[in-house]
């Protein structure tokens, strides 16, 4: 049933692998155009140059939020774009990471740098346990099951007020490094940027690893791959766990950065927002994921001035982009650029 990957992307991918396997030297131009080197380089240049445009803490705040969302979306894109599995519950993992950091530091006095990996470990374990039964499901059933996991996490967080502060949320102590409190846009900008670059790097490496190749090989022929002896479930579980851990780390960052967490972070809408970012930017494109996160984080800020028309406009833009660019922003635009280049 429902294969959710866009058709056509596998051809392009396979070509790359063939080239590598045949040992043909790539031209410098091809290296620059490749996602791994050219894309990484472009991302780092953009991240390094962006602070020149940021005038105050609010603008840093938006940039940091983009970065945090992008980390989640890069991971989620591995799951949706490459493994072909949808998740409507990743906000749950995000929130678990955030609350792990909040609770361990505020209530048990742990250092934030310790709380974050502990949270990620816990979330990874949880994801690993539920991955097998959940990934047996497909299409909308999988969507429902992941949604259910997210909703249950949300309910537990808002009910157990003694631990989580309940629906009104709880404070998170500021992160301290060698007695210095980390506060303010610029510091957090670089922290989040480092994590984002790491996430993108991990993602690109996974895509080019045997796991990534196996996942791409599954495209449209899962049963054939299984018959050929590929343990498809194992790879899917792996990607599910990786994406959950990335969400958890992003959640921890968000908690320490904003010094406040609410159950809202685990809401169904937050999950939907992450998925929308993946699709908006373009499935199976790591940089599409970053662009999707950037556009959909900025949009509500830009629309805030339209007051009551905000939601109408947001809904219209979502529909229009998906109708006119069903493959997402980045693949559509690079497709256009490539065609124009070829014509020349």
């Amino acid at each position: 049933m429902a294969d959710i990957r866009p058709s056509g992307y596998s051809k392009h991918r396979k070509k790359q692998t063939y080239t590598r396997r045949l040992g043909t030297r790539a031209t410098p131009m091809q290296v620059l155009m490749s996602e791994r080197i050219g894309g990484m380089g472009a991302l780092i240049v953009i991240i390094a140059a962006l602070p020149l445009l940021l005038a105050n803490n609010y603008q840093y705040d938006v940039a940091i939020t983009i970065g945090i969302n992008a980390i989640v979306v890069v991971g989620l894109n591995l799951l949706i774009g490459y493994a072909g599995q949808i998740s409507l519950g990743h906000a749950g993992f995000f929130a678990l990471g955030a609350y792990a950091s909040a609770i361990l530091t505020a209530r048990y006095g742990l250092h934030g740098a310790l709380a974050m990996p502990l949270g990620a470990l816990g979330v990874g374990l949880l994801a690993y346990i539920i991955a097998r039964p959940i990934l047996r499901l497909s299409g909308h059933y999988l969507a429902m099951a992941t949604l259910g996991v997210g909703v249950i996490i949300n309910i537990v967080i808002s009910r157990e007020a003694w631990l989580t502060g309940g629906p009104d949320g709880m404070y998170v102590p500021p992160l301290e490094v060698w007695g210095v409190e980390l506060y303010g846009g610029p510091i957090w900008y670089w922290i989040v940027a480092a994590f984002l670059v790491l996430a993108v790097w991990i993602s690109l490496n996974i895509i080019d690893s045997p796991v990534g190749r196996a996942l791409r090989g599954l495209h449209g022929a899962e049963v054939a791959a299984e018959v050929a002896g590929v343990d498809t479930t194992r790879y899917k579980v792996m990607v599910f766990v990786i994406s959950a851990v990335m969400a958890s780390v992003a959640g921890s960052l968000a908690a320490h950065f904003s010094e406040f967490v609410t159950p809202e972070k685990a809401s169904f809408f937050h999950s939907i927002l992450f998925v929308t970012m993946v699709v908006f930017g373009g499935m199976a494109s790591t940089f599409g994921a970053v662009v999707g996160a950037a556009v959909l984080t900025l949009l509500p800020q830009l629309l805030a001035d339209f007051a009551s028309y905000e939601h109408m406009i947001l809904g219209l833009i979502m529909m229009a982009v998906m109708i006119f660019m069903p493959r997402g922003l980045v693949p559509t635009l690079t497709g256009l650029a490539r065609r124009r280049g070829a014509r020349r």
Partner: peptide
């Protein structure tokens, strides 16, 4: 694909 339709 299905996810695009969901987002719409």
């Amino acid at each position: 694909n299905v996810v695009t339709l969901i987002i719409i």
